[in-house]
Amino acid sequence: MKIILNIWRQKNSSSPGKMVRYELGNVNEHMSFLEMLDVLNEELTRKGEEPVTFEHDCREGICGSCGFMINGIPHGPERGTTVCQLHMRHFHDGEELWLEPFRAKAFPVLKDLMVDRSAFDRIIAAGGYISINTGSAPEANSIPVKKQCADRAMDAAACIGCGACVAACPNASASLFVSAKIAHLGLLPQGEPERDRRAMRMVLKMTEEGFGYCTNTGECEAICPKGVKIENIAMMHRDFTRAVALFREESKAGGAG
């Protein structure tokens, strides 16, 4: 099948980019979208042109490396899938597609379709973890976890940090990503002790990194390749508000804990 591609080409983060048109005549419908781009890149390399840069790693939809906009939708038109798991059979012969990078101030374009998502790492570093000493594995049933909480935490933990939620949001908000981590850890007994500080530190970091705010459009939830729900965003708002209202200093006389 034949596919017409309009791809955002940008040399580096400081130079301006533009859409460039490519025609690809030998696309197999069983190819994944990234394999189709591999074919394009081989052609470009043969012609001595610069291949299109895009991020990818596992190509099985679990690492969160890949992702760009296809016709204005992150990861393309199919729901619940990353771009590496999107197959060309979902497009028709002769279809024209527009590919461009995720756009947000906090996600500067590095090259072509590749953006710098290290802002996500800095948000995680601000509080998206549990401070726990590692050692031998504890007895599995020593900490009871309510099944419903484990289920919700697991659903939130499905987030692969691809950044599609930011890309789809009209306000370039990272709320779905941040709230998924806040919900994932906050719903579990191991994460409960740091729940307040986590919400405060992660929300503040997200604001500092220049992400927008949530207007409850539900766009992120609709395009999330892992089906993370905006119910988590409500929990983040709840946790943050409660944490700021009830925050207490640590007691100086509280021991050397």
Binding site: G72, I73, E100, K105, P170, S173, T217, A222
Partner: peptide
């Protein structure tokens, strides 16, 4: 401020 460069093409799914 959060999205200084607009999309060339943007679609909405749920909004």
């Amino acid at each position: 401020d959060a999205r200084p460069t607009p999309y060339v093409k943007k679609a909405t799914v749920a909004t």
